[in-house]
Design a protein around this nucleic acid. Structure first.
Ligand SMILES: [Mn+2]
Ligand SMILES: [Mn+2]
Ligand SMILES: [Mn+2]
Ligand SMILES: [Mn+2]
Lengths: 227, 227
DNA sequence: ACCCAATATTAGGCTAACCTAAATATTAAT
DNA sequence: ATTAATATTTAGGTTAGCCTAATATTGGGT
């Protein structure tokens, strides 16, 4: 009887998956930063993950780490739990999109496959979480998504917001206060190459909004064809 | 910043609470049996709980253990989580009453007070869990309940099933198969003092049911006045 | 090509929660 | 009151996951 992987191991694998997607590689210090542990702890855990039977990561010292198929599978299981839970907390219990990440981070490790399945059914097998991140399918395939980063748009271009990075709850609250949320339609009306500020007009609001590059790099959109 | 009590400590306190209610005292070996650890482990944990600041239990060696007010409070918090979760899993996600205990045993440690509150609201501040156990109120008062054990009833007496001990999922499945579930109305039609079997007729069913004392001691009812 | 700052690893330790085996206390039966 | 059976505690040890401090590697700037 194979014993469940620990919460810690699951968090490491999930983090390695995310960093690999978003930065190309997962380094010791990035993992440490995300998980709020010391780099020394990460070195130790990585060594362990690499020497498990079967190995969950491939490790080349000082070169960072990548997931093996086994590690990838566990990561996707946890990410599916996490994103389904986020949506469930929002849709069924009325949480707001800035609160769900923290709660899902704890719940993701303890729900059964049975509960995962019932949540997915209740929500109608959803494809995106509240931040626009894709939810891996039941057989653990990550849906493709080809969104453009908002900081690449220029005046005249129209778009629909599809995804906002979910790492900072304060930013999420700030953005929803301005109507910058998934599915919002917008048109870019200004850009300054000095500070990379982008000014945009949301369909739903009167006022225009100016966002700096620190923010626009966290937002991803579907670009609309010219009218 | 006081750090959260561990899952383990929470399970010990919950178990001590339950044993104290149901048996009058919580002994080392009973705790060990419920938590599926060795008595030696329980001795160690109890010693620790008693020496915490503030103490969570009062411990007299070889005499068992009782909760302090602090320990009681934590136990009731976890029991409130557990029972709200059981009902939520049944009502909102379609779990059956024999599945909810196991799932709630894991979830009870990780839900936030915010989530507890939202679940309670969604369910309309319920008073009983799916097995008829009372749910502590938000300010951690355990509602009184005065039910009679089914094994004390005799032919001619009518009753409504109010509570079934939730310790054995197989028994719960067996009983719901026969219609023996909370809120079912029944009348006792037979009793044998040789084997303490009780025969009863449920309003909802044609057939009568015979239950042995091992079962009737797990079932609690509200006795109806004579007609 | 070399050096240094940034990154990463190793060495050594700690704590929580468990275990087994040995010792001891309690209780029930004579 | 003794003793045997049962219940409990103590002693000693393991494992996972973290920490700090010391050491080693890497890679960019000169
Ligand atoms: Mn997590
Ligand atoms: Mn998300
Ligand atoms: Mn539990
Ligand atoms: Mn219950």
């Amino acid at each position: 009887m194979k014993t469940k992987t620990s919460d810690s191991v699951e968090d490491y694998l999930k983090t390695i998956y995310d960093l690999t997607q978003n930065y190309g590689l997962a380094t010791t210090s990035k993992i440490a930063e995300v998980l709020e542990v010391t780099p020394a702890s990460v070195s130790g855990m990585i060594k362990k993950l690499a020497s498990l039977q079967p190995a969950l990561v491939v490790y080349r010292k000082h070169r960072g780490v990548i997931l093996t198929p086994s590690g990838n599978k566990i990561a996707l299981e946890i990410i599916r739990h996490h994103r389904l839970l986020e949506l469930f907390l929002k849709e069924s219990l009325g949480f707001s999109w800035d609160e769900v990440d923290e709660e899902a981070d704890r719940l993701e490790h303890v729900i059964s496959e049975e509960m995962e399945e019932r949540i997915a059914q209740t929500l109608g097998d959803p494809v995106f979480d509240p931040h626009g991140d894709p939810i891996p399918t039941k057989d653990l395939l990550m849906p493709d998504h080809f969104f453009v980063c908002l900081n690449e748009l220029r005046p005249g271009q129209g778009a629909i917001i599809r995804r906002v990075r979910d790492t900072d709850p304060d930013l999420l609250r700030y953005l929803s206060g301005k109507g910058v949320i998934p599915d919002a339609r917008l048109i870019v009306i200004g850009y300054s190459h000095f500070d990379e500020n982008i000014e945009l007009k949301l369909n739903a609001c009167e006022e225009s909004v100016v966002l700096g590059p620190k923010i626009t790099r966290q937002i991803f959109v579907e670009v609309l064809p010219d009218e």
